[in-house]
Design a protein around this nucleic acid. Structure first.
Lengths: 339, 339
DNA sequence: GCTTCCAATGGGAGCGCTCCCACTCCCCTT
DNA sequence: AAGGGGAGTGGGAGCGCTCCCATTGGAAGC
């Protein structure tokens, strides 16, 4: 006969610690939670027992008892999972992760791309699988917005969704950044400043176009109509080509993000236009790639890691019962060679 | 008098569902878990009750009872949190997330950069805060390797750690890829093929140098000594500059990743060497940036999303009690203009 | 010296679910 | 006709923790 094939050597429990320390579970629990009403002697006894047994509290049991999971979810929506492959999100995560760590919260990452994924997120929200949620990259009329709203759980938006402004959000000053970029182009004497928009079904896309528009109108110039790209390099190249055809005399272009600016640069190069001599180009995002572009891209820097950090901080505050206020992070122009 | 300020309107429980459906908790539980031994009538009654109450099972309670959290952790080690900002990880995550979704597992992301972060990971492992772990980017002698080993929990390594090969891992054929890249350079008639290594305290760095070495030796050529960069663009530029000084006659260079290749390209350009006419350059990784480099970079493609996907799949298999075998994913050369 | 108060303590009732097990029928063998 | 087997069912004991509450005893207040 063999031994039982499943040696149930389980983790020690609080009960075991208490017993070894010669105290009750209550006292042991208090020591672990750093709560008052424990004598120094027993406190030390418990600490010794914890060390001896290499005890680690079971987070699940604690979660059940306290009704707090100790986790925050970062939900990235969008039909295409590869939207997430954008280094943008990696940066956001670095920031969010750091802030969450400070608040002693774990990070659950949910890419709600497929139907199944969305359903799982929904269950997470409604089943209280996390203490709070950060919602990013929601599309127009995203059903997740409603679910999040109904779930009785703190929700912070990273970047405002299209249309309504939620109760709590952290966003970047897209309009201001776009305005600054356009004004800069104007200040360099350019007058025929074209624009390559991002998707206009996103708030980012709209806000950046708005900033461009503001600056043009303020300068008494006619803004170009919104030529829509989809934030990718090829779309930037395509829109640039179309622009060149319709307005051969343009002398500058503001692209709503760096990827599209890179595409524009490529088209311009292929068309034999010199940058910035013939056409000045400004992007938005200040990705690593912007620095390495040829020529290095003048672009609007946005604090991506800070966006993640502040979103997470706001969520943590909410979870702790505080009432933070929405936040808009500043952007600033980084001058390089392309404009 | 005001009403109680904390309306404890709680989620309905299984108990409530059972009561509404006129069955016992056991039966309701069976229905929810799709278990047998339930009559059709009661099954439907329970389903109706679930809908009526908009019942969602509490994952925490389930986790406590089953001793399964339903989550897998992806731990990214490394002293510098920004290592994670590398688009590499974003890709890995997309793959892992998809595979985890299929296995109905949630993704917990842990960036173990700070001491506090490492401690939290340790607690996660030892406290059974997840059903399994994927470990990536471990450094030499990383204490996490031991903790993971001791934790009685499935562990899969994404990329082998330096030195020991763990029981379960998914890796990319770094040596084969580097060999292929070098062979290609050789086959184009280059004979003075230099190398820019990655950090040699990582297995990736070593394996890629090994591949380069193999190819050189097989061709009867003297391999260059390992000139170590740290996988960043500036380090590639610096090593390239040093190389040019010591070996002005070199006619090709294999860089252990695309970032360093980009740096090399920059140095070469500044030194007035034409690529590929004077010096051919091959990178490794096939990042998006490689395509946009000037000239577009010939590089070794590695299936990053697949790495994430397979790592997650292996972990899921382990969690389900299966016994998978380690996996090495193929790489292949992508020919572009730089070589 | 006697009440008053509060720090210290441990018992016990949950938190919401799973799962073992005992029990009842009912159908199908021999 | 008696027995076995299994499907269907519900009760109850956990899972490991927190937290309320009753109890104790010694210090402080009068």
């Amino acid at each position: 006969m063999v031994m039982a094939d499943d040696p149930p050597r389980r983790q020690p429990t609080l009960e075991a610690v208490a017993e070894l320390a010669g105290v009750s579970r209550s006292v042991a629990s208090r020591v672990l939670n750093n709560a008052p009403h424990v004598s120094q002697v027993k406190r030390e006894a418990v600490e010794r027992a914890v060390r001896e047994l290499a005890y680690v509290p079971n987070p699940t049991a604690r979660a059940l008892a306290t009704r707090q999971t100790g986790a925050a979810a970062l939900v990235v929506s969008g039909e295409d999972p590869s939207i997430f492959a954008d280094p943008f999100f990696a940066q956001v995560i670095v920031g969010a992760s750091a802030a969450l760590e400070e608040a002693d919260l774990h990070l659950m990452l949910c890419l709600a791309a497929t139907d199944r994924g969305r359903r799982r997120v929904e269950e997470l929200l409604r089943g209280k699988g996390a203490d709070g949620v950060m919602l990013m990259a929601l599309r127009e009329n995203d059903p997740l917005a409603r679910t999040a709203d109904e779930a009785e759980m703190p929700v912070v938006f990273g970047g405002r969704p299209v249309g309504s402004a939620p109760r709590w959000y952290v966003d970047v000053d897209n309009t201001g950044g776009a305005r600054e970029a356009t004004e800069y182009l104007l200040s360099r004497g350019r007058t025929r400043v074209a624009v390559i928009c991002g998707r206009l079904d996103t708030e980012v896309g709209r806000a950046r176009y708005r900033g461009y528009q503001d600056a043009m109108l303020a300068a008494g110039l006619e803004p170009f109509p919104p030529n829509e790209g989809d934030f990718t390099e090829p779309s930037g190249a395509a829109v640039m080509a179309a622009l060149l055809l319709q307005h051969p005399d343009l002398d500058a272009v503001f692209a709503a993000n760096d990827n599209m600016a890179a595409g524009a640069l490529r088209t311009l190069r292929e068309a034999g236009r010199r940058v910035p001599a013939d056409v000045a180009v400004v992007g938005f995002d200040d990705l690593a790639a912007a620095r390495m572009a040829d020529p290095p891209l003048t672009t609007v820097h946005q604090p991506i890691a800070a966006l993640g950090r502040e979103t997470a901080r706001m969520l943590a505050a909410l979870i702790h019962g505080e009432t933070p206020t929405p936040l808009i992070l500043p952007t600033h122009l980084v001058r390089r060679a392309s404009a």
